[in-house]
């Protein structure tokens, strides 16, 4: 399930002294593109590795992650067809997902 290198990349960024956040799919409904446990590592420059969707919401998640790197607060983001913002960013599959975002460190 965790077949990408998000954690390893997060550790590498941390070792370089960068600010790093981790986003994890914690709940899915319907035809969500990636299963729970899928992860995206984001650094303080907005670069990211891994995925939490088929590419639909990574941009928004990365922006929230940079916010988390600044304020250190955890947050759970919801995306789905019923969600106005998801409509904007386009979770086109019609699924719904919750994404937990946390700073590392």
């Amino acid at each position: 399930m965790n077949d990408d290198r998000a954690l390893e990349q997060a550790a590498a960024w941390l070792a370089e002294g960068r600010g790093v956040a981790l986003a994890t799919v914690v709940k899915t409904w319907g035809s969500a593109p990636r299963p729970a446990g899928s992860q995206l590592a984001i650094n303080d420059e907005g670069a990211f590795v891994g995925s939490v969707s088929g590419g639909c919401i990574e941009g928004v998640v990365a922006a929230e992650a940079r916010e988390a790197i600044r304020d250190g607060k955890v947050r759970t983001l919801s995306f789905g067809v019923s969600n106005e913002r998801a409509w904007e960013v386009g979770l086109a599959c019609g699924g719904q997902i919750d994404v937990f975002v946390e700073r590392i460190g």
């Binding site: 965790n2 390893e8 997060a10 550790a11 941390l14 590392i104 460190g105």
Partner: peptide
């Protein structure tokens, strides 16, 4: 996530 938790996860995966 604490940095030591991340380190432990990466080590376990390796």
């Amino acid at each position: 996530m604490r940095p030591e938790t991340l380190k432990a996860l990466v080590a376990a995966r390796a």
